[in-house]
Design a protein around this nucleic acid. Structure first.
Lengths: 227, 227
DNA sequence: CGGGGGCTTGAGGCCACTCAACGATAGTGG
DNA sequence: CCACTATCGTTGAGTGGCCTCAAGCCCCCG
């Protein structure tokens, strides 16, 4: 549980692309790619923030730990998402690849330089930070005030919006990850999913139970109360 | 409980001062002041964000509601704090005065104009948003993974750092506010405070129980686990 | 075929919630 | 000055939702 496999986490330059940070014709920002194996750490909490990342494919969890091992996952980052964006010099989360994950990356310092002169890039930085803040605010409401069933329903609807393809969502993360995202135990998550399955609100396909079809979004949304 | 007293919430221009938004000699930004009575709404969730606010004196709670009335307070804003800073056009929280509160305010549009041309102001905006994000991230860990005693201990330490004067902190907010901030019931908060009082970790002074002396920060900090 | 990881399910326990009573204080009006 | 009321905080008793611990299943992989 507490063993940390230390691998070479030094990114190697690979290609150039768009981090959503270019402003019009200004694509000065050079990018490289790197692939992390399932379960490996991308960066650790309090490490100096050298890079900013964008998920090309795969999934990333970022979390905080208490000293006794309790874990709170603050966010999952899926294809297209940017993470590791810090204002101060150090990361405030640990980030790990949930599955094999390829990321694009850019030196933080370089990005700051560009932001200094380019108002569009600067505004994009603010806009992304605000998005993160908005997600965190909604998640506080979930963590503090929703029941286990409401939490799981909210999670499914969030993931449905972010990774559903052809009516089926293939969750990359385990029940334990979901539990640590929702402030629950994995058994509680499992029980909630079973209840939603019994109620014919969702269906499982595939061999493990990570591929889910939402049969009745309307009824699911009723569990996740509106504000 | 659900009655909302509608008062005149239109701010009247009053004075000029510093919102922490001036960059060097650039103090173009004009400010006015407004005072809200205890319990009155400053702005509502989803209202267009016309102003940005700074607490001059008093205290503000910002919160989200579920449709059945469950409330999650995302933050308390005390003297000096800036709140109501939104990127999109609408507020994401409701803000209310916890006690009689005077705020400085600035038109959001005006601030955005200045930020457009002034890189320092722009950077300050990002920096403040990041602070809010950081607070929210830590609060998610608290809400999702801490016990009631740990939550209350963390709350006391936070408030100690923010409003302790001469060794005693005068909490402006009620037990219900604290509970809704920590994802607990007010009875649970009260019990936790009683336990900490029994353990001679804190003491109450004054007639109501809102003035608190921390006798042993070291032992209190042990309840709020390090990360 | 044995072992391990991930998921489900059951049984029992505990922590926080619910409901209720009570005390203290402040404000109000007779 | 004293009811009377409203608000806020504390405390107790009992409940319940989620947690804990455990067993068992399935699938994959050696």
């Amino acid at each position: 549980m507490f063993v940390r496999i230390t691998t070479d986490r030094t990114p190697r330059p690979n290609s150039l692309s768009d981090l959503g940070m270019t402003s019009g014709s200004n694509s000065i920002v050079s990018l490289s790619e790197f692939t992390y194996k399932k379960g490996t750490e991308i960066f650790g909490e309090k490490e100096p923030a050298e890079y900013v990342y964008q998920v090309k494919c795969g999934a990333v969890r970022s979390y905080k730990l208490l000293s006794d091992g309790r874990r709170q996952i603050g966010a999952f980052h899926l294809a297209g998402d940017i993470f590791g964006l810090e204002n101060c010099g150090a990361h405030r989360f640990t980030a790990e690849a949930v599955v094999e994950t390829t990321v694009r990356l850019i030196r933080r310092q370089r990005l700051e330089q560009v932001a200094e002169t380019d108002a569009i890039v600067s505004r994009n930085l603010l806009s992304m930070t605000t998005s993160n803040l908005q997600h965190a605010e909604n998640h506080m409401l979930l963590l503090g005030r929703k029941t286990s069933l409401e939490k799981v329903a909210a999670f499914l609807l969030e993931m449905d919006g972010r990774l559903s393809a052809a009516g089926v969502m293939a969750l990359p993360m385990s029940r334990l990850d979901i539990a640590d995202y929702l402030g629950l135990r994995l058994e509680t998550v499992s029980r909630a999913l079973s209840r939603l399955h019994e109620a014919r609100i969702l269906d499982f396909i595939g061999h493990n139970q990570r591929e889910i079809v939402l049969l009745d979004r309307r009824r699911l949304a009723r569990f996740d109360l509106p504000s």
